[in-house]
Structure formats: structure tokens, C-alpha cells
């Protein structure tokens, strides 16, 4: 089963070779009561220790497919399910330092049964998470 927090403890890691980190990624539980078409997800803002990485630049990996925001918005045949966390990939030269970080996510989702004036819904959460590698 998954953890209650949106950002899962496992999966928080640097990307790229040790001598040339290109960014980091984290594992995210869908903040909704139902699974969704990926096209209804409008990206994820990530902040680490108060540095913002905006949703327009971050990629999401859903069921093994890595998508830019533009690709995500068109991905109506792909589903982000409740029981499979998605990976958020963030570009950051050098990656993150080993140790504990304050990580905030703001997940943007669009629910077609709400009036469009109230969309997207933005679900925020902050937790401490630890980079090991």
C-alpha cells in the first residue's frame, strides 16, 4: 500500500551520473478520490527548501511514459491510477544535496464536473524528505 502523504518516502532521488547530476525526481500519490485520465492533470509545482520549480517545466511519468506539460494535457488515453504513484521529474543542474529537504508539491487537477471557473483544483502538501543518492 502507499503512504498517506502525497510525496512518498521512497523514490526521492537525484538523476544523472554522480559527477553530473541533471535533476531529481519524487514519487507522488494522486491527490484525489479516483483515478484520472492524465489529460485532466495540469502539472505539479515542486518547491525544495523554498526554491520553486514551476509545473510548466516539470515532467510527469505516468504508467512508464514520461510527459511534458503539453503532452500531459493531450494524454486522454493514459490513466493515473490511485494505486500507482506517478514520478515527477525536475531539471536542476547538480541535483540536490544528500540529506533532509523540505519538499512542497502543488498538484493541479481539472475535474470536468466542477464549473470551469473553479478549475484547476490545486492540492498542496509539504513534508520532509531525504535524498540518499
Amino acid at each position: 500500500m502507499l503512504e498517506r502523504t502525497l510525496v512518498q518516502t521512497r523514490g526521492f532521488r537525484n538523476l544523472g551520473p554522480v559527477w553530473n547530476r541533471s535533476g531529481f525526481e519524487l514519487l507522488l500519490r494522486l491527490p484525489n478520490y479516483r483515478g484520472m485520465r492524465a489529460s485532466l492533470v495540469d502539472g505539479v509545482d515542486v518547491s525544495v527548501d523554498d526554491v520553486l520549480f514551476p509545473h510548466e517545466a516539470n515532467h510527469l511519468v505516468v504508467q512508464g511514459r514520461e510527459l511534458s506539460l503539453a503532452q500531459l494535457r493531450q494524454a486522454f488515453d493514459l490513466r493515473w491510477t490511485l494505486d500507482e504513484p506517478a514520478i515527477v521529474r525536475v531539471a536542476k543542474a547538480g541535483g540536490l544535496s544528500v540529506g533532509v529537504h523540505d519538499v512542497t508539491v502543488a498538484v493541479r487537477i481539472r475535474q470536468p464536473y466542477f464549473p470551469i471557473e473553479f478549475q484547476p483544483s490545486i492540492i498542496r502538501e509539504t513534508r520532509e524528505a531525504t535524498i540518499v543518492l
Binding site: R34, M36, S39, R110
Partner: peptide, 12 residues
């Protein structure tokens, strides 16, 4: 059994 008709399929 709850289902959805997600009529606003994409932003476009």
C-alpha cells in the same frame, strides 16, 4: 458503480 463522463477531455 460510479463512473465519469469527463466531457472536458483536454484543455483544447
Amino acid at each position: 458503480y460510479g463512473s465519469w463522463l469527463d466531457t472536458r477531455l483536454t484543455v483544447s
